[in-house]
Design a protein around this nucleic acid. Structure first.
Length: 271
DNA sequence: ACAAACGTGAGC
DNA sequence: GCTCACGTTTGT
C-alpha cells in the first residue's frame, strides 16, 4: 500500500515547485556526514589483537586526531574522544570489539550491585547519567553508557547484554535508520532524533511536491514533504522492521565473537 | 486511525 | 538566531 505511493508526487512538480530551500541533492551534507571512513567490514575484518586498544581508550594528548584535521569544527565539545562521538557509533563498535577480542573489556554485569538491585529497572542510572561502568583490565574504569549500545548493535535485554545479529546490513541498517540512544527509548531527558536513511526512494527524492498537506502546511506542520518522508522514519523504533533485525544473544558469554564468526561464515560481513 | 499542531533537537 | 524536520500530543 504505502509502497504504492506515487513517489514522484502529484504531477511530479519536481522542478516547478521545488522550494528554494531544498537542495539539489537528496541529502543534506549533515546527513552524508554520518558516513564513516571505514565500513563495518573494515572493523570486523581487521585482525585486532595487535591494535593498540589502550590508545583507543586513552588517546594520548599528543596523539594527532586524524578526524579533526580534515573536518570542520565539531559542533559540540566532545565529552569523549571522537570515537565515542561518532554519530553512528561505529567507532564505539570498533573499540568494543577490539576490547572484546583482546579480552580487555570485561562487561561487569549488573550483578555487582547486588545490594538490592534486582531488575532492569534497578540500573544504576540516573536521569542524567544513565551509565554503567565497565572495567577493561587497564586499570581504570570508564563509563560506558548503555544508551550507546543500540548504535553498536548491542541491546540491553533484561539484565544481560545482547548484540544484534549483526551482519553489515544489520548494524549499518540500524545506523542508517538513525537510531540513537534517545530515540530507542533510552532517553529520559536526552531525546534524540533519528535521521533520514538517505537511501530510500523518498529520501532520494530531491524536491518537495508543494501540494501535500505537509508542504502546504509547512509553517505549522514542521513536516517534510510526504513524498520525501523517509521510509525508515515511518517505521516506529521497536516496530517489526526494527525488531526483526535485532535478534539478540547473550553477550556475557563469548557469544559476541561467536556471532561475529557466524556472520563471517555467512559472508555477511564481507565487503 | 489519521492528520494537524506543537515542541524541540540539530545543522547552518 | 534561523530553519528544517523528527517525535509527541491533541483533535477529528
Amino acid at each position: 500500500m504505502s509502497t504504492a505511493v506515487d513517489i514522484a508526487g502529484p504531477s511530479s512538480p519536481d522542478q516547478a515547485h521545488s522550494s528554494s530551500k531544498i537542495p539539489n541533492e537528496p541529502l543534506r551534507p549533515s546527513l552524508k556526514r554520518s558516513n564513516h571512513p571505514y565500513s563495518l567490514s573494515h572493523y570486523i575484518s581487521t585482525p585486532s589483537p595487535a591494535v593498540d586498544v589502550k590508545a583507543l581508550i586513552q588517546p594520548s594528548p599528543a596523539q594527532p586526531r586524524a578526524a579533526q584535521s580534515g573536518h570542520t569544527k565539531p559542533r559540540r565539545a566532545p565529552s569523549w574522544p571522537d570515537m565515542w562521538e561518532s554519530p553512528s557509533g561505529l567507532h564505539l563498535a570498533h573499540a568494543a570489539e577490539l576490547l572484546m577480542r583482546a579480552g580487555l573489556l570485561a562487561l561487569t554485569p549488573a550483578t555487582t550491585e547486588q545490594g538490592g538491585g534486582s531488575g532492569p529497572e534497578e540500573e544504576e542510572e540516573d536521569s542524567s547519567g544513565c551509565r554503567t561502568d565497565f572495567q577493561p583490565f587497564l586499570g581504570a574504569w570508564f563509563p560506558f553508557s548503555p544508551a550507546l549500545f543500540p548504535l553498536t548493535g548491542f541491546q540491553m535485554g533484561g539484565s544481560h547484554w545482547r548484540s544484534a545479529a549483526i551482519g553489515a546490513e544489520g548494524i549499518e541498517g540500524l545506523v542508517a535508520e538513525g537510531y540513537s540512544p534517545g530515540s530507542l527509548g533510552g532517553g529520559g531527558g536526552g531525546r534524540r532524533k533519528r535521521k533520514r536513511c538517505g537511501e530510500c526512494v523518498p529520501c532520494r527524492r530531491q524536491t518537495n511536491c508543494e501540494q501535500c498537506s505537509s508542504c502546504r502546511n509547512r509553517k505549522r506542520g514542521h513536516q517534510i514533504c510526504k513524498y520525501r518522508k523517509c521510509e525508515e522514519l515511518k517505521r516506529k523504533p521497536g516496530g517489526p522492521g526494527f525488531d526483526s533485525r535485532v535478534s539478540g544473544f547473550d553477550l556475557r558469554g563469548s557469544d559476541f565473537t561467536l556471532g561475529l564468526a557466524q556472520e563471517r561464515s555467512n559472508g555477511a560481513l564481507d565487503g
